[in-house]
Design a protein around this nucleic acid. Structure first.
Lengths: 335, 335
DNA sequence: TTGTAAGCGTTATCAT
DNA sequence: ATGATAACGCTTACAA
């Protein structure tokens, strides 16, 4: 790659002038402008981003940290964040923490060492350590999809209470009264929130959640199967299920069909996330849609705003999920 | 972040010595070593990667370009490549070309401007332009998942003829003789290869592919539905289908169930890719597995080897897909 | 309007 | 074994 030096030589000006032309920071003479632009074109010159970044202390780089890459929610985030970053002329450096706090710390450190302009986290694993690291740096950072107790960083989350309410309302409105809930791991705050809202809303509709039908699980396909087998082996009756993600819902679907239970005729099923899988399943899955695109856009917006003005106060945005009705739910008793 | 200068001052040595300690390039005295190491620890010093990269002309960065991020094959590649890169202490900078050659060129340029050490491409859209760009740079580059006609770059691909053969053999062995094939876009070489091998292998088994049952499509879920509706409306009979990706196969499954055709009782269905969706569907999908993990590992290996020694000749690795048998295929006539 | 030169944080050469 | 110092490619006072 050619450098400004070569451009300057070819155009017969100083490198400072070349820099001025490129960043059009101060006016330059018409003819020198032309000369420089010609030289730039001739050499196909593009400023080296490391040198620039080193000088101005900005890598035009956004770091994105997700707990795992192969996971629909994160894929969606990666996709939209990449797109948004691109539109603002930032490159994206991607890392998964491989579920290991050491890796996470290593990765964050690397980002800092690259003069990233901002960092977007999804679901930090080990909050304190990373925050401690970041706290001194005064670098814009947004946590997405999981609020931290810590108020020092901005966050973009979905309203998990709404999610629970939507699921409860839908099942209740369809006339279901024997209802099961397969949650994610209950040490994750958002899972507890979802369950709490779900339970309470059902209660408001006069439906008490049978505790045998509440099953904390690990978000996997197999978890859905396990949970249903558990319900059946306990002899607990149910006509409605909410699984806290689509993947577990797929497992539920599989297991119910193995037991010759029809969805939605015998059991109505709601998922969560609205991953693309939801529409592909048969029957297609009624689910609670997480607004991934909006989350991503919001996160990038916040980071970019804070990059432009570090003084901007931390913000905490809560977005609302929505109910997407497909084939897997129907009124109770419909044959 | 602290700099070498500060470390040097604290340790009472020159910054050159600090550099030596960090890269342990030449021996240093035991006690200065201790002093420097203490200072490094005290300041939590990590060398700035932009400065280093600028100086040694290597960003310890691998660029990955995929045509789209939300696509199981690429997610899988991103995941494994990230993991492999991490293990070799490289960061990953990710970009999709958004199906736009301009974006692609922009992105590649950015990578070069960041002194990336290597680039891994998946399915280049506009081959000549990008290659022209890259050709002068002498930077290690590997094309994955789609061989270029161009021999100048290394490639890691799967054997698409094998894929076609495996699908044909499996269906033929199960006794199917009326067989359909839903391909990807036929302007993509690998789709043609798959079809050619599929057709020929069937022929070798004495089965002629009915041309009304060959349907070029666009890899989408809807495509699978469209294709089956097309077959049925033409009154073409079939008991076996190969869809050239799992997503279209999911559409096929959906459409067949809408027509009350049972899989595998009435129709046997094979997909391709072995995305995680395959196991989640009901019935679970027999499919041709692409060895994404091995592809990723191989690609990273090649890039790293070429980084270490630019003189290493271009290599072209072809990996073999394999048949994964699940529930969606069965012997013909089985009721 | 343009050029000179310092500096960003490293590495590497050349002395000592 | 260690220290000055130039260089990597750029931006930005400061001068002219």
């Amino acid at each position: 790659m050619s450098s400004m030096k070569e451009v300057a030589k070819l155009a017969g000006v100083s490198i400072a002038t070349v820099s001025r032309v490129i960043n059009n920071t101060v006016p330059v003479n018409e003819d020198t402008l032309v000369k420089v632009k010609d030289a730039i074109r001739a050499l196909n010159f593009k400023p080296n981003l490391l040198a620039k970044g080193l000088r101005i202390k900005s890598g035009r780089l956004i770091g994105l940290v997700v707990p795992e890459i192969v996971h629909h929610a994160f894929v969606s985030l990666i996709n939209f964040i990449h797109k948004n970053a691109y539109e603002h002329d930032f490159d994206l450096i991607l890392g998964s923490n491989l579920n290991n706090p050491d890796v996470e710390e290593y990765f964050i450190n690397n980002l800092l060492r690259r003069n990233v302009d901002g960092i977007i986290f999804s679901r930090v694993s080990d909050e304190s350590r990373v925050l401690r690291l970041l706290d001194k740096q005064n670098i814009p950072i947004v946590v997405i999809d999981r609020a931290l107790e810590d108020e020092r960083v901005s966050s973009v989350t979905v309203n998990n209470s709404t999610a629970g309410r939507l699921a409860a309302d839908h099942l209740a409105a369809l006339g279901h009264r024997e209802i099961a809930c397969i949650t994610g791991p209950l040490n994750i705050t958002l899972c507890r929130e979802r369950l709490r809202a779900f339970r309470q809303r059902l209660l408001e509709a006069g439906i008490a959640l049978d505790e045998r039908l509440v099953c904390p699980e690990d978000f996997s396909f197999e978890a859905g199967i396990r949970a249903v087998n558990g319900f059946l082996s306990k002899g607990a009756r149910f006509t409605g299920i909410w699984a806290q993600n689509d993947r577990m819902a797929a497992g539920v679907l599989k297991c119910l069909s193995q037991h010759d239970l029809k969805v939605p005729d015998d059991v109505s099923l709601i998922g969560m996330d609205d991953t693309d899988m939801a529409a592909l399943l048969t029957p297609s899955l009624t689910t609670i849609k997480q607004p991934f695109e909006e989350m991503s856009r919001t996160a990038v917006d916040i980071v970019l705003r804070q990059i432009q003005d570090r003084a901007i106060p931390r913000t905490h945005i809560v977005l609302e999920p929505s109910l997407v009705i497909r084939e897997s739910t129907a009124a109770k008793g419909k044959e």
